[in-house]
Design a protein around this nucleic acid. Sequence first.
DNA 1: CTGTTAGCGCTTTCAG
DNA 2: CTGAAAGCGCTAACAG
Lengths: 341, 341
Amino acid sequence: MRPTVHDIAEKAGVSLATVDRVLNNRPGVKPKTRALVEDAIAEIGYVRDVAAANLARKRLYRFEFLIPDSDNSFLDQLRAAVHEVAALSRVERVEIGVREVAAFDAQALVAAMRKAMMGAPDGIAIVAIDEDSVRAGTEEAAEAGIAVVTLVSDLPGSRRIHYAGIDNLAAGRTAASLLGRFMGATGSVGVIVGSLNARDHRERLAGFEQVIERKYPEIRILPLIEGRDDPARVQRLAERLLAEQPELSGLYSLGAGNRGLVKALRAHSPVRHLPVIAHELTATTRAALSEGLFDAVLNQDAGHEVRSAVRVMKAHADGLHTVDAQERIRIDIFLKDNMPQ
Amino acid sequence: MRPTVHDIAEKAGVSLATVDRVLNNRPGVKPKTRALVEDAIAEIGYVRDVAAANLARKRLYRFEFLIPDSDNSFLDQLRAAVHEVAALSRVERVEIGVREVAAFDAQALVAAMRKAMMGAPDGIAIVAIDEDSVRAGTEEAAEAGIAVVTLVSDLPGSRRIHYAGIDNLAAGRTAASLLGRFMGATGSVGVIVGSLNARDHRERLAGFEQVIERKYPEIRILPLIEGRDDPARVQRLAERLLAEQPELSGLYSLGAGNRGLVKALRAHSPVRHLPVIAHELTATTRAALSEGLFDAVLNQDAGHEVRSAVRVMKAHADGLHTVDAQERIRIDIFLKDNMPQ
DNA sequence: CTGTTAGCGCTTTCAG
DNA sequence: CTGAAAGCGCTAACAG
């Protein structure tokens, strides 16, 4: 049997209460006694039974998820994932709140963070916006002992305890590497971004350019198209591109709004096939893969991200460690042939 | 507060003991009383606190992992993953045993299963061999109330409760799809298998052939090379292939023993680059990717597989459900540009 | 500063 | 067939 608090108490010749005080380093223990207990703990190789502790403590973990209110499929998945985890988690003493926040609005995000902090939760998960006001908000939370986890888009240089999302630089590099090959290492490639204010989009672009320049010097990157993740706008701009750039021989859509792109391509595809790589496996991109309109889709699994965020915040609350490999969010590469289901 | 057994007892007008008997459907309760309690449970929306139950019960989950004794990097990873999980799990009341089994030997596997069953564990994880004797062994275990999970290689048509591994057919298709493009949809492709007695290898091959035939009719598949997952043998056969097949324009290594392949390619690569796709991200394949000798590596994450197997067996033991999406093992596609770390 | 005691939600003897 | 009571490993008043 694993040693228990009773064993420590006996070995150290003190009461359970004192052991508990030392274990949870609460004040009111004479240094000498403390040392006595600590020695016993070490010698005996005690590990706390977190489940029993939580039971006695009636511990309830409370986390707040702040999700942008943008209307795109990936965020729908993210929201769905949060709600699913929330439902399942009630059984495990975790209570998850979800708040919608105006998208791409640092002020709104910080305001939402402050509001969330009022409830003194154990942790807050945010889709970060890369601005100093948000860093300051994170700092405030950290100061108040509230763990902040960034989701999907990171906030380097802040006191967030974890980033649950993919390496967007690597994603951009991967897209370039695949697309370069699909294009036969030559021709002109169009790049559709959402907004360069979003850090994840900037990073994808940087990674993409890096590899195209180094590895495919014969490929020319056409002037960027900013689709603002808006299907209608993306469609209009893509149609224009397809019409006006006869030498176009590849397309990388690194943001959202792919519904518009697919419409434009569908009208165009009878003319000639164009290698296309996009992000996030949604109903739209999935269909495009099946039809052969898209050649690859890079994906981040929203479910994994949310579960990982919860695991990390919970471990943090318990002062426990996490398995790094388990928390690394992968860049999934989907082709027509390995789509799930 | 969530309703507890006390609430049920009160509502049904019975004692805790009776509630417990009903909850764990143990005998010795008058049908009428049982119904009374069941109604109360339903009405009140009770969900058992598994942690508290386990504490009271001093529950200990015991699982046995039967791992082939082959000497290859992937199995090393798998073994390492089992030991890592074993170490971490002691804290969570799960005790994991590991036994080595002669590789590719159905008899040995069944014998090991029987031996493992003697200890009456809650579950056994096996790297299945696709033979009826193993199905029978699984049946025996199921009969004895021991859950069997297949790891890495599945055993369809058996009573295993779960398969923790990738879809090897899809993996083969994916390899074909990528390699076909990398080869420019034309030329001759060599395929190195481990052994066609292994179901996972057979399936990868089938998926590969399927896509090459349908999608790349111009590509010719050369006669199979059986490397038996043995580096030395793979090297010899690969060297011969490279020397004797001047029209060779692509290579798919779907088994292990890639160390030998890399040596052969390294000697060959100054001559001309050959698109190569292999399986499992190990030190060898990782280096080959970096060097540009391999173009892509399809991977299954041994850590995920083991953790998933444990989660599923544990949930089964508790009569709980699992999140399908979480337990699906993905086919990771690694290029030079998205290798982790 | 330290110890006693009564639980947390559930299971399990042991009587009746 | 049913119930009372003790206890799993830990925490939290409340006394001293």
